[in-house]
């Protein structure tokens, strides 16, 4: 009989009952295998000692108090915001969410918006154009190929913006007090990324059938933004509209893959937050916002339920909603009531 493989010898150390009787009998009578077994045992002990758990006593009470979920009001009060507090750590994310809304709209306009958020009111942050397109960085979980970038640029007027993007540029019926003149128009094309999931690279639990190797296309944009500058040179009002971020899959439903990704331990919070903004039909937009910096509420805009973001000092606000596959944002250094009036009056 052939000598049993090393893996069998290894199991013999831990679970002899799991090894076939014939193999056990062979090893017991075979000097070669007994010598091999001794080597396998020595290695197992050496490595076991090298990766031993040497944590000693632990203070479980203190650890429990440290767990954010233990003290967060998630179970009783405003779970939605608690979840957001958990998943979003970067203060710029509210700006980022608005930027996403303006996607396609763009880098220039969005940068201005972020500048307001970051340099004047909130901890300075550094944010790159790559962040603004808001495609989650899934490169650790498979192959991510960005095949189309937004190429944000100004255009002369609404007609040119429509011609380039195919989006009906929302027309503001009446400008709020203090905002005047003509807007600048910015357009951006589609951002397209193709992601192929690689279960081996991703690690973690076994994915559902069909998920390993599944390919999805994540698309954001095109979009258009109208920006009214204030005297101070910052945007007083931004009205943006873009095709809502969406994901397309020709294999397993996108939600299956997304939920599997979200279930992977170790998925960075910001990637998870971005991932959640992608739906198969582009019908919803769960905005990731830092609740310690920005308040969220909802308001009705036409038939849609809009999310209202307000900075805690009330200096800035945004109204964002998704309707018929398009996401629209009205934002600026104005009162929420003024922004809602603009939002509800868009034609």
């Amino acid at each position: 009989m052939r000598h049993p493989a090393e893996g069998v010898l290894r199991r013999l150390l831990d679970e002899p009952a799991g090894v076939a009787d014939a193999d056990r009998r062979h090893v017991a009578d075979c000097a070669h295998c007994l010598a091999e077994l001794a080597v396998v045992r020595d290695d197992a002990m050496l490595v076991g000692a090298a990766i031993a758990d040497s944590t000693g006593d632990l203070d479980t009470d203190a650890a429990w108090r440290r767990l954010p979920a233990a003290s967060a009001p998630a179970r009783v009060a405003v779970p939605h915001r608690s979840r957001l507090r958990d998943i979003v750590k970067r203060p710029a994310v509210a700006g980022l969410a608005v930027a996403l809304v303006l996607t396609g709209a763009g880098t220039a306009a969005a940068n201005d918006w972020l500048k307001i958020f970051s340099t004047e009111r909130i901890t300075p942050v550094s944010i790159s154009a790559a962040d603004l397109v808001a495609l989650p960085d899934l490169s650790a979980y498979g192959d991510l190929v960005i095949s189309s970038r937004p190429d944000v640029h100004p255009v002369a007027d609404a007609a040119a913006a429509e011609a380039e993007t195919g989006i009906d540029v929302p027309e503001v019926a009446e400008l709020p007090r203090g905002v005047s003149g003509d807007p600048e128009y910015q357009v951006g094309g589609e951002v397209v990324a193709t992601f192929t999931f690689d279960a081996t690279r991703a690690g973690g639990p076994l994915p559902p059938p069909g998920v390993d190797g599944a390919t999805v296309r994540l698309v954001a944009g095109p979009g258009v933004a109208q920006v009214w500058q204030s005297d101070a040179g910052i945007p007083a009002l931004v009205v943006g509209r873009a095709t809502a971020p969406a994901a397309f899959s020709d294999g397993v439903p996108f939600e299956v893959l997304r939920d599997h990704l979200l279930s992977l331990p170790g998925l960075p919070d910001d990637v998870g937050a971005q991932l959640r903004t992608f739906t198969a039909d582009g019908a919803s937009l769960p905005l990731p916002v830092p609740s310690n910096e920005v308040r969220t509420s909802t308001a009705q805009v036409g038939d849609a339920t809009a999310t209202v973001l307000t900075s805690r000092d009330r200096a800035l606000a945004a109204v964002v909603w998704v309707d018929d596959g398009e996401v629209t944002a009205v934002a600026g250094s104005l009162d929420v009531d003024e922004l809602l009036a603009v939002a509800r009056g868009l034609r």
Binding site: A5, E6, G7, V8, L9, R10, R11, D14, V40, D43, A44, L46, V47
Partner: peptide, 8 residues
């Protein structure tokens, strides 16, 4: 067993 053995 084979996988654990290789790692060790």
């Amino acid at each position: 067993g084979t996988t654990v053995r290789r790692a060790e």
